[in-house]
Simulated assay, not measured.
Amino acid sequence: MKSTLLIQLLIISCLACSSDDDEDVLLADVDYRQEMRNYVIGISQYAKANNPGFAVIPQNGIELVTVNGEEDGSPSSEYLEAIDGNGQEDLFYGYDNDDEATPAVDNEYLRAFLDVSKNAGNTILTTDYCFTPANMDDSYSQNENNGYISFAADHRELDNIPVYPAAIHNENAQVISALDQAQNFLYLINPEKFATKAAFIDAVTSTNYDLLIMDLFFTDGTVFSASEIDQLKTKANGGTRLVICYMSIGEAEDYRYYWQAEWDSSKPEWLDAENPDWAGNYKVKYWHPEWQAVIYGNDDSYLKKILDANFDGVYLDIIDAFEYYE
């Protein structure tokens, strides 16, 4: 009996090891960069089938614009054609520390990729984290010299409308109906400092930014409605702006509507480790169909809610999740 039990335990152990080894082999076979490209392309195709003018803008993970992920690599045409722009944080300020200039070597590295996308006809939106007026001025100047549209964020939390500069960089009264018409933008995805939706809407509509990047949800968990988004599209001077919705696609967030309580104790196959730098944010195997179905492709998906709320586009975050798996 003991001998038989021992053999059974050994078989179970070997099967478990074999299963782990098989999973490691399968993961090793994944082309993480191409899977992220495919994911973004799928998001774009679904969104544009619903609204052809809908803008798709991945943030960071800029290496995806070339086939081999090298600065001098061939452009990844299908990916570049699927997107309308690229977002990049910390380009001139904030790479190591806020309000400090990004090291030249890192700036040059990022700009080489950003220019691949720009040369393909895409709009580049950059966010520098700096708060002294001289650095904010320099950020706007350097970005403009490179043909990028920029925002100097004086709070990394992206929870405020900066009071400096007093006049928005390249402020205008134009009707902005396409991404490539925008000359400036406001990145305001954390509305916690606003007591109500009405207060948030009033604060934004009192400005003349050409483009707003915001969250679908207010702090109380309610969705901004299509009528509320439409209110946000009018500038104080009578011009119009685009309103773009932030959406994280490379991590799952336990404070979002889609989170299920049982995931806390029994994770689905695609849910991975918690991000040590952002509590409540979890890495995901983003190529997994079940996770992608949370994000897009059906009437219950996150992206469909964004489309239904009448946003003009989507700002995709955690594109660089491929680095975690590589």
Rank of each mutant, 00 (worst) to 15 (best):
E100P: 07
S177Y: 04
V116N: 04
G239I: 10
Y79C: 10
T240Y: 03
D99R: 11
K267H: 09
S44V: 12
S141N: 04
E171Y: 06
S13W: 01
Y79W: 09
D308Q: 10
A55H: 12
A112R: 10
A49K: 07
I249G: 05
L91C: 06
Q181W: 05
F322W: 04
S266D: 14
V314P: 04
R241Q: 09
Q181Y: 00
D299W: 00
N298M: 00
T4R: 13
T205L: 05
L242Y: 12
D272V: 02
V175Y: 11
K2V: 02
I318A: 09
D137R: 02
I7N: 04
Y302G: 02
A152N: 04
P191I: 03
P268Q: 02
N172H: 09
H155V: 00
A173K: 01
L15S: 11
N237W: 10
L64I: 09
P191G: 07
D159R: 04
A199W: 05
L216Y: 14
S150N: 09
V116G: 08
D180C: 09
D159F: 08
L303Q: 01
D230A: 15
S248I: 06
T126V: 15
N298G: 04
V105I: 14
R156N: 06
D254F: 07
D230H: 08
K193Y: 06
S177N: 13
L26A: 15
Y148G: 00
E23M: 12
A49T: 05
S150W: 03
G238F: 08
N86E: 07
E70I: 03
A47P: 02
D308G: 12
E269S: 08
G147E: 05
D115F: 04
Y187H: 14
Y109N: 08
E144S: 09
A49R: 00
N68G: 06
A152I: 05
D29I: 11
V25I: 15
